[in-house]
Write a protein that binds this DNA or RNA. Structure first.
Lengths: 196, 196
DNA sequence: CCCTTTCACATACCGTCGGTATGTCAAGTA
DNA sequence: TACTTGACATACCGACGGTATGTGAAAGGG
């Protein structure tokens, strides 16, 4: 183990993921061919199919990577806050900021559901990100900070709102102003669920 | 005009749109081939390319049809209400209900942005549906019913929330209960923007 | 140290797909 | 009736995703 063999293997795999991610981001899953990816990674299709089961499988692993990075950034930002309510706000804001990156947009928000199907995409998002949102909301209900109500539909509404807002923000002509406005509106939405 | 020629033409076109819509709904844009579509429509590829510029163009016209139907149902439901605030609520609720249909899900919500790109998808949605949401919100601000604030970010947040909620509802094990819960949460979100 | 096995690829190939160029024949027109 | 137009059908092409097989270097045992 850990010899020349496995090191080279890991590098090839990482190169394929990196170039795949770059090309999927730039031109979209449908229009980029495997030939381009393996050329950019300076390997052949044999190598790609040795590491991944299919084009869709490569995309799935790329998506997993992107989701992991977003989740990590959101978690890091949220955990910097002490108050649970502030953690929720900080997490949402961090998600909004992170999701305006081109690779997150195209891979995670646009192509993801279409390539893998909405159900699988949802399951992956749940495991990476949405779970934390559900946990945060549940915790705040137990604390009495927000009024008790079914968590899932609320989480989906908020998640969908943030996804669409991020896509809109990425194409905005006045990103700073629009981000402020969107955040203001989102914050008011969240505020609406605080117990009175 | 209006002879045998143009009547046959219109029928062929409508058949292609109908079968394309059905297959795109059942199996998704990426996995259905033109050969299947033309076989189902009982014509050849020559006919398809005589009516549409490409596979993507056929999809675009199918999407336009779906969006038009959703918009019409929403508008009809909303217009049945007299009070502007009630019109907004009724419209949102009608959108939520209409968007759980399989063809709306797959074509409008999942494949649409990926196939045409988010920007074009957004523009089409704007022209068909979102425009009414913006108009309703603007009108309510002018009436003083909801507090003045930038309309666009709010509209995007609400639109995204409803889209994601609809996708979630479609796969729900308890559709009635979940629809009620989702609507309850969405209504509270809307309520949050009423002037105090 | 050598022989064997393993494995991380490379090469060659296949069926299918979206797209196009061209042919055809009936409906329209003068 | 002679001619034109148009709504397709037919035949074909390059490119794509996927697979079967070959290969040479690294790992492992005696």
């Amino acid at each position: 183990m850990d010899g020349v063999r496995s090191r080279q293997r890991e590098q090839t795999r990482r190169t394929l993921l990196r170039e795949g991610r770059r090309l999927f981001t730039e031109r979209g899953y449908g229009t980029v061919g495997l030939a381009e990816i393996v050329a950019a990674a300076d390997v052949t299709k044999g190598a790609l199919y040795h590491h991944f089961e299919s084009k869709g499988d490569l995309f799935r692993e790329v998506l997993r990577e992107v989701q992991g990075e977003v989740a990590a950034r959101v978690a890091a930002t949220a955990d910097a806050e002490d108050d649970p309510w502030d953690r929720l706000l900080a997490g949402c804001r961090a998600f909004l900021a992170a999701s305006t990156a081109p690779d997150v947009q195209r891979i995670m928000l646009v192509d993801g559901p279409a390539v893998l199907g909405w159900a699988e995409w949802r399951a992956m998002d749940e495991a990476a990100s949405a779970r934390h949102l559900v946990d945060a909301l549940t915790g705040l209900m137990e604390l009495g900070t927000i009024a008790p109500r079914p968590v899932e539909p609320l989480a989906h509404l908020l998640s969908g709102a943030m996804n669409e807002a991020a896509l809109w923000l990425a194409g905005s002509a006045h990103p700073d102003r629009d981000l402020d406005d969107a955040w203001s509106a989102l914050a008011r939405m969240l505020e609406a669920f605080r117990a009175r």
